[in-house]
Amino acid sequence: MIEELVRTGLARFEYRHILNHGQPSVFAALATECGGDQGKWWNFHDHYMTTQDFSREGAIAMAAAFELDTEQFAQCLDDETHLDLVNGQHRAASEVGVRRTPTIHINGEGGAIVADRLIEQVMALAAELEAEG
């Protein structure tokens, strides 16, 4: 659904890390960012959303499956290279009032989680922006 909106060129979609479940949340966020270093950020995003496997071995196995440099990936994990980034996203979300997950914002404003309503909101906002010129 979001992909369809993005495909139209009307919208861009961004994902921000929320770390509400402790170490597994932090690890998955770090692994995703380490995957992003080698161009596979969304692969790891979808992997964690699908498998819920938050083990180091599973992450490295997936890195190998995605044909990443596993040594570099493992080093990134062990060094917690992106810890400041994921912590910063979590803090920023808290500052704008995000408490629950998932939370959708459209141009910084609260949006619907239900697909049909989200599409309606995006289309309404697109029409408003077009009218403004």
């Binding site: 979001i2 919208a11 861009r12 979609f13 949340s25 950020w41 964690y48 998932p102 939370t103 922006l129």
Partner: peptide, 22 residues
């Protein structure tokens, strides 16, 4: 796709999802 972002970087509408993987 650029890390945590998909779509036209110049798109007028930005949909942001705040989420956890768990």
């Amino acid at each position: 796709a650029n890390r945590n972002s998909i779509g036209d970087p110049d798109a007028a509408i930005v949909i942001t999802e705040y989420s956890d993987f768990l």
